[in-house]
């Protein structure tokens, strides 16, 4: 190991954060760019399924809450892009990578938000799963990422509560409303479990990320936490658990659960979800539609700069005269 590498590993081992100007192995930098930009893209693409419901929210209070939530998610995208930029990549490059498919976003957003109940299920289960992961990332080794996570977690736990509260209202409502809640739970439960990624033994990036403390807990451990916490929440709603194999295991101190349909997981990741194409196409379309606005902004700023320079030149000429 070079002295730089030794110093880097010493910091990792003693829980000292790595900061943007610190030396870091190239693979560490690449790994972080991949992970944080993917996280940023997920926040941004995630505004599509929920944004889809803003105009149809069934009460003004829910509409206001949903607007605030989607706005938060876009804000998370923004600070995660900024955190990634500290690693030497521009937002334009990240957006290009998203649009050409070389960067990914969370596959959960390839599932359609079909009903109002899905807005609740997304907040409760999808944000809930994200929090379990993000809480552990508050201790990630890269300083800007860890700090972004602390802020994001605070807002995400509000999102999860709003999702759960929305479900609770449905479950206390008419039989039709309760059926809507059950249907959303059934459709989003398994995909939420898949958000933690493949089993540890199958996970491509896991071992190295753990060694560098980018990841702090394994996919399966995090998934287990989520499974455990969700059982009581489902009971409290009075809904049926979608996993018929769910069963408390006294010896392990955890719930045993049924196996995830990994064929579905890989199928959706590989383009067979209901919304894969639409999500990216929407992002590209909106980006292209906005190009004249960005150009106008750049042109205006150029003109202003030229005017300022001209004014200063005139002023110094006057002084000379």
């Amino acid at each position: 190991m070079t002295p730089e590498e030794q110093n880097f590993m010493r910091k990792i081992e003693t829980e000292e954060k790595i900061e943007p100007k610190d030396w870091m192995p190239e693979a560490y930098r690449k790994n972080l760019i991949r992970q944080i930009s993917q996280h940023a893209h997920s926040e941004v693409i995630g505004t599509q399924p929920e944004g889809n419901w803003i105009t149809r929210a069934p009460s003004l209070r829910r509409k206001a809450v949903l607007l605030a939530k989607v706005q938060d998610e876009a804000g998370h995208g923004l600070y995660l892009y900024s955190a990634t930029e500290t690693l030497g990549i521009s937002r334009d490059e990240m957006i290009a990578a998203l649009q050409d498919g070389s960067a990914k976003y969370a596959s959960i957003f390839n599932y359609p938000a079909q009903t109002w109940g899905d807005v609740g299920a997304i907040g409760w289960l999808v944000d809930g799963a994200a929090i379990v992961n993000q809480v552990s990332l508050q201790r990630t080794s890269y300083g800007p990422y860890a700090r972004a996570m602390i802020r994001i977690c605070k807002e995400e736990s509000f999102h999860q509560r709003q999702g759960y509260e929305l479900m609770l209202e449905l479950c206390r409502g008419t039989p039709e409303q309760k059926a809507m809640a059950q249907d959303s739970l059934n459709r989003f439960y398994w995909p939420a479990l898949m958000m933690f990624g493949p089993h540890d033994s199958e996970s491509a990036h896991s071992a190295r990320s753990m060694q560098w403390k980018i990841k702090r807990e394994s996919n399966d451990d995090l998934r287990q936490k989520f499974i455990d916490q969700t059982v009581k929440q489902i009971e409290f709603l009075g809904l049926e658990h979608p996993d018929k194999a769910i069963c408390w295991n006294e010896a392990r101190g955890h719930y045993d659960s049924g196996e995830i349909d990994w064929d579905e997981f890989y199928a959706v990741i590989n383009g067979n979800g209901h919304c894969n194409r639409q999500r990216l196409q929407h992002h590209i379309k909106v980006h292209e539609e906005g190009s004249w606005v960005r150009e106008a902004l750049a042109a205006y700023n150029e003109k202003q700069k030229a005017r300022k320079q001209q004014a200063e030149a005139n002023k110094s000429n006057q002084n000379v005269a």
Binding site: T47, Q48, I54, Q71, V293
Partner: peptide, 22 residues
């Protein structure tokens, strides 16, 4: 205005529109 959320020319505008709609 809320129709602009997820449709703005860049992310900052999505957020600003969301804010105004709210």
């Amino acid at each position: 205005i809320s129709e602009w959320v997820r449709n703005g020319p860049f992310l900052e505008e999505d957020i600003a529109y969301g804010n105004v709609a709210l």
